[in-house]
């Protein structure tokens, strides 16, 4: 399934076919993995792999949807540099990776509980105090969320 977005092709794939698709793309010439990131939608997490072809400079994005608590296969055999990117995804979103050499926290302290970038993890803001009896406010709520 492909959709074009700002000129970049987006391929959606299921978890089982992920490694085959990435291996096929890599042998076709998309040899550089530019970015590995994720977006959290509370019950599920969308993981994105952004690939680039160094000879034609075309980019393609591969999207995989994984439910909370499920694990993805690792791509460190194809790209050794994906090691830290997967550790960051584990730390921030709680996405596990099967076959990763050393999956532990990278940005938060080792004994931190919780995965900060998930949407239901609170920001833990301190309300700002005001004088003259005005109620304390959190900075992110001063301009409310408007759809």
């Amino acid at each position: 399934m492909t959709t074009s977005l700002g000129g970049m092709k987006v391929l959606e794939v299921k978890k089982e076919g992920l490694i085959d698709l990435l291996t096929a793309l890599k042998s076709e010439g998309y040899a550089v993995l530019v970015d590995l990131t994720a977006t959290d939608y509370i019950t599920e997490t969308k993981v994105h792999y952004l690939l680039r072809n160094p000879t034609t400079n075309e980019r393609v994005r591969v999207v995989v949807v994984v439910m909370r608590g499920e694990k993805l296969p690792t791509v460190t055999d194809l790209w050794p540099g994906a090691d830290w990117y997967e550790r960051e995804l584990y730390d921030m979103f709680g996405v596990g990776f099967l076959g990763h050499p050393d999956l532990k926290r990278i940005l938060m302290p080792d004994n931190w509980e919780g995965h900060p970038m998930r949407r239901d993890y609170p920001l833990m803001e301190e309300p700002v105090q005001f004088k003259h009896g005005v109620e304390p406010k959190c900075p992110s709520e001063i301009i409310p969320h408007v759809k």
């Binding site: 530019v34 970015d35 990131t37 977006t39 959290d40 994105h48 952004l50 540099g81 830290w84 990117y85 301009i143 969320h145 408007v146 759809k147």
Partner: peptide, 24 residues
């Protein structure tokens, strides 16, 4: 430096990811 922005139509970004050069 790469920016990946997901917008859900509201006045605050839903997800802003900064692909930084020094990480790799």
């Amino acid at each position: 430096i790469g920016y990946y922005l997901v917008s859900d139509g509201s006045n605050k970004p839903y997800r802003l990811r900064v692909r930084s050069p020094s990480f790799p």
